[in-house]
Design a protein around this nucleic acid. Structure first.
Lengths: 246, 246
DNA sequence: CGTCAGTATTTGTCAGGACATTCTGATGTC
DNA sequence: GACATCAGAATGTCCTGACAAATACTGACG
């Protein structure tokens, strides 16, 4: 049964050992070296072969179980899941998604300026009503066609967001680069008909169905770092979510 | 700083100790005994006070961090998150959601019978094309108004699903009661205009925006146990998703 | 030949210890 | 007074060891 798993460990690397193991198992699954349904060697044997302890191996496997790549069963063993999990639960941005799909997204920045927060925005960002917040409005294109109308509010002082930077990269990418560590996001997804203004910007007919998403993202500390209200052309885009129950 | 956390442990219980600890911390957070931003005692002190080892305490805390209730920071400590996380990532069904919101959902079963699977359904359920699968069509009401049109396909032999049972309870609930352990679900969420037939069933105008969801759910073993294609009245319902990044 | 009990295998839980890394705050120096 | 340095505190990683519980297999018995 010993599917030859060649795992190289670098003990001098700052990357934790359990993570090195997890990454290489995940890579073997992605590349097909470990087929769906294949059984992994048992934990003790794996630990022994790699010169690691069982808790370290367990941590690596647990990480992959949480991501939905592996399934464990007491008394049986650990297997690669059958159903192909496309993408794990991630804090994903439209820009990243499009780039991964090879779509070459472009962005037009409609406006980017500080504004006093209204009641609703102040409430979700947990700042006093009337505080200046950065208001951002963009149109996202893919393959030359308009895809979404993006509306964001951010607390001030989160690093330098310039129109130039926003044309070249996604908002999440810029925030991460500025040292913001996003951890939790609440999304509400709905649908409605396009207003005339939206229809014009998105090259749709008036009343065309749009996918709407309202999202608030929190960092490490639970502080709100971004609030967005986006609309997508339903004819050109859909959202994908993978849920994993512990 | 020692917020008095009264944690009772029952070592004779089959419930794991780390889980007992996690549950009681979570309860303290829910009840307000632990306010957002409050710092937990450090792991070593906690372990000492409860007579447990540090790994056990860590496992309990890790469980709550994964659920988005706590935040850890090296060199600092463990805190209760500020942003109120409404609901963790769960395999949730429309029926459960409505009941939790106190809406008293009702269901009308339009059809429930075995049918040969077409290409697409056979592919997602991973059965040979033409195999008999259970096809289920329902209308879900809340507060007397139609809310969604639900369309499901299930492999045969998953327990007795009867129209009567489906009128009284949600599909997920019935599957769980039949011993099905669902673990991973892939959802694709989109929007489109209502067809005349859909508009009639849902009491909407033709062309009204609908929220669409196509979902495949997998069990423990990675076997597909349910495939659904649902449409919701966008004017009456929206989906909520919470994402947590590890 | 079928059923039941026992046994081996494998993951789940828990203990206790050691060192590394990171963040905060205080101390000291220029 | 501002900046750099250092010590303390907390979590992160990793180790060894042990027993419990669930599952699958095997052999004996009816």
């Amino acid at each position: 049964m010993g599917t030859r798993l060649d795992i190289d460990l670098d003990r001098s690397s700052p990357v934790p050992l359990y993570f090195q193991v997890a990454e290489q198992i995940a890579e073997a699954i992605r590349s097909g070296g470990l087929a769906p349904g294949a059984r992994l060697d048992n934990e003790i044997l794996l630990a022994d072969r790699l010169g690691l302890s069982r808790p370290t191996i367990r941590q690596a496997i647990q990480y992959l179980v949480d991501k939905g790549l592996l399934v464990r069963k007491r008394g049986v063993g650990t297997q690669v899941v059958h159903g192909q999990v496309k993408r794990s639960v991630e804090l994903t941005s439209l820009y990243d998604d499009l780039r991964r799909a090879g779509q070459e997204p472009t962005t037009r920045v409609l406006s980017l300026r500080p504004e006093p927060a209204d009641e609703e925005v102040a409430a979700v960002l947990a700042v006093p009503s009337g505080t200046e917040v950065l208001r951002l409005e963009r149109v996202r294109y893919a393959g030359g066609e308009p895809l979404a109308l993006l509306h964001n509010w951010l607390p001030t002082g989160l690093g330098a967001l310039t129109p130039d930077a926003l044309r070249e990269r996604g908002l999440y990418e810029l925030l991460r680069a500025a040292g913001v560590r996003m951890r939790v996001a609440n999304q509400r997804i709905g649908a409605r008909a396009a207003t005339p203004a939206e229809a014009r910007l998105l090259d749709e007919r008036r009343g065309a169905p749009l996918l709407t998403m309202v999202r608030t993202t929190y960092d490490d500390q639970g502080r709100a770092v971004e609030h967005g209200s986006h609309v997508y052309r339903a004819s050109h885009y859909s959202l994908e979510v993978t849920l994993i129950e512990r």
